[in-house]
């Protein structure tokens, strides 16, 4: 089922529900529970299967729908272990795109943000990419101090995976970086780090 967000945040993108659109080619990227939205899309428009290129990666929480997706037999199916691993393939499809490419992304926010960013860099307008949030609310966060990005952040505060500072997650989102902003939580009182709370499940 679609993810429910409890608050609206000004700089956070709004996500919709994938709907089939006419097109010469269809690039579909999904992670984890996003596989369910892909199956729902194909159920609605089985003709997409003939030209669909699906790139899928398991969720950080272990959800892996590879078997279900392969079973419906899209024209091309690739399973990749992570976005970083699959990025070259995705960028190639976006770069080779002719008029009429439809792009669908579903799953976690970090995945959707990165595909939108890469699509924009390839010259597609950011609203040319359809999105649907599914599964985990873990965040992709950039440390404002060292600029390193930590994937799959579940708690607030958390420790930067690069410089080791303790960061709180600001509700401030950059589409260009596809990341939220992390800011040192104990800057004024070094060492006084509040207990981590699981805010992003």
């Amino acid at each position: 089922m679609q993810t429910q967000f409890d608050t609206t945040m000004r700089s956070r993108p709004r996500y919709g529900v994938l709907e089939p659109r006419p097109g010469l080619a269809h690039l579909i990227v999904a992670d984890g529970e996003g596989g369910e939205a892909v199956l729902a899309l194909f159920a609605q428009a089985p003709e997409l299967l003939e030209t669909a290129r699906v790139i899928y990666m398991p969720g950080a929480n272990g959800t892996d729908m590879t078997a279900e997706l392969e079973a419906v037999k899209p024209a091309q199916f690739s399973r990749v272990p992570s976005y970083a691993a699959g990025r070259q393939r995705i960028v190639k499809v976006l770069g080779d795109a002719h008029m009429g490419l439809q792009v669908y992304v579903t799953g976690t926010e970090g995945l959707m943000g990165q595909v939108q960013r890469d699509a924009m860099e390839a010259g597609l307008p950011h609203d040319a990419v359809q999105t649907e949030h599914r599964g985990s609310l873990v965040r992709r966060v950039q440390c404002v101090h060292c600029k390193g990005i930590t994937e799959h952040v579940r708690t607030d505060p958390f420790q930067c995976g690069h410089c080791g500072l303790n960061l709180f997650v600001r509700d401030h989102y950059s589409r260009r970086l596809a990341a939220f902003q992390g800011v040192c939580v104990d800057a004024e009182d070094p060492g006084e780090v509040p207990p981590a709370v699981e805010r992003f499940k």
């Binding site: 404002v144 101090h145 500072l165 902003q181 800011v183 040192c184 800057a187 004024e188 009182d189 070094p190």
Partner: peptide
């Protein structure tokens, strides 16, 4: 700057 907040915050 936020970049240097951990340095000037104290």
């Amino acid at each position: 700057s936020p970049e240097n907040y951990h340095k000037w915050g104290p």
